Structures are given as C-alpha cells and as structure tokens.
Simulated assay, not measured.
Amino acid sequence: MRAPLGNFDDARPAPDCLDLLTAPVADAVRGWSHDVPAEQLIYVDTDPEIADTAAFVEHYGPELLDASANCVVVAGKRGGESSLAACLVLSRTRVDVNGAVRKQLGARKASFAPMDTAVGETGMEYGGITPIGLPAGWPLLVDSAVVDVEWVLVGSGRRRGKLIVPGKVFGGLPGAVVIDGLGV
C-alpha cells in the first residue's frame, strides 16, 4: 500500500497492525465507528530517531510540513480542581494555552500537563500522543485548520510510527470540539 502523503516504505491500514499500537489506540481502532472506515486510518512505520520536525520532513517528504499535527495534553485549574484535555493543532502552529484553551475549559489557569501525567493518563508514549484512543470523557480541542486538511499525520501512541488520517475525522472523535484559533 502507498501512503496518501509522504515517502514511507511501510504503510498499512491501522486495523492490520494493532500490535504496533499502544493498547488505548489499538482499542479505539478495533472499536472504530465513524463515517470514515477504519481502513482509511493508515499506519506508517517511522524512525523514532528522526522525530524532530525538520529532520522528519527532510527524510519523509516536504508536504508533511503542512499536513502534520501535534496532540498535546493540557491541564486546566479552577478553584483547586484540575482537569485534563487534549489539543490538536497543525505542527507549524502552537497551542494557545492561555487564551483559547483556558477559555474553552473554563479554567482560571491552563498549562501543558507534566510529561508523567500525560503519559500515565493516556497510556501512550511521550512524543507519540494521538487524539485516537484518548481517555473517555476528555475534551479534545481541535483547531479548525486541522479538519480542513485532506490527510493529517499524527502520532500513533508510540514514538515509532505515525497515523495518516483524513482531517475531517478529528472533528467527530469522542469529546471533540472544533475551535477557530486554537493554533496560533
């Protein structure tokens, strides 16, 4: 199979490689029930040693610069209570934590969650966190620019490997809220 973007030697439908995904991501793919069939979620094998965006794009293809998205975990705090959420923005932007995120979560303060919290709560590896398979009940804040991209490259739950997914999928994931200006 050829990936819809990038130059990857190994591209397969995600349901065919559940053993290469972390448990929460594999469970989400296994139980997939969206308008887009699970077979359109494409797993591509990548070298975790060249995960830096510049090196990754140079190795796997320049079109990935505009088609890659980052998923980060944020913590919102209000009145001593803390809540977690995930944010998905195009890689060429950064998450507006103190503006859009804080407002959407109704938090007095918002910040990136510590690495051990992000990894422990998601069951995914740091640097590979993906919006597919997030904990039930978490808000998933998605920048509107992401859903407008035909194919989006995101993490697979591990540092090795990525998923290539139709952008429109992200607006329909559990807990998803599409927000203009989440990525600045």
Rank of each mutant, 00 (worst) to 15 (best):
A75R: 15
V146I: 11
V97L: 07
I132R: 10
A75C: 13
L88H: 12
P13W: 04
S91F: 06
V97P: 01
V146M: 06
K77L: 12
A75G: 08
D66V: 04
D16G: 10
A145T: 15
L64Y: 05
V147D: 01
L5N: 01
D66E: 15
C17V: 15
V154R: 04
V149L: 07
R2G: 00
D35Y: 04
V101F: 14
M124G: 08
R160G: 05
E125S: 10
L141F: 14
G181L: 11
G175L: 06
S156P: 14
A176C: 04
A28I: 07
W151A: 00
F8V: 09
A23R: 15
R2S: 00
R30L: 14
V177I: 14
G175Q: 05
E49M: 11
A54M: 09
S33F: 07
R30N: 11
P174F: 12
V97M: 07
P4V: 06
R158W: 02
A51P: 08
V74N: 10
E39K: 11
A14H: 09
Y126N: 03
G79L: 09
D47P: 12
V44F: 09
R159T: 10
T53V: 13
T122I: 03
V169T: 11
A3L: 11
V177A: 11
F170R: 10
A145F: 06
L182E: 01
M1T: 13
F56G: 00
V29D: 05
G167S: 02
G61E: 08
S156V: 13
S33P: 04
A28M: 08
D10C: 13
T53C: 04
R92S: 02
C71R: 03
A110D: 01
G106K: 03
S82E: 13
R159F: 04
L90Q: 01
Y60P: 03
E150Y: 09
P24Q: 02
A14Y: 06
E121C: 13
P135R: 06
E81C: 08
V169R: 11
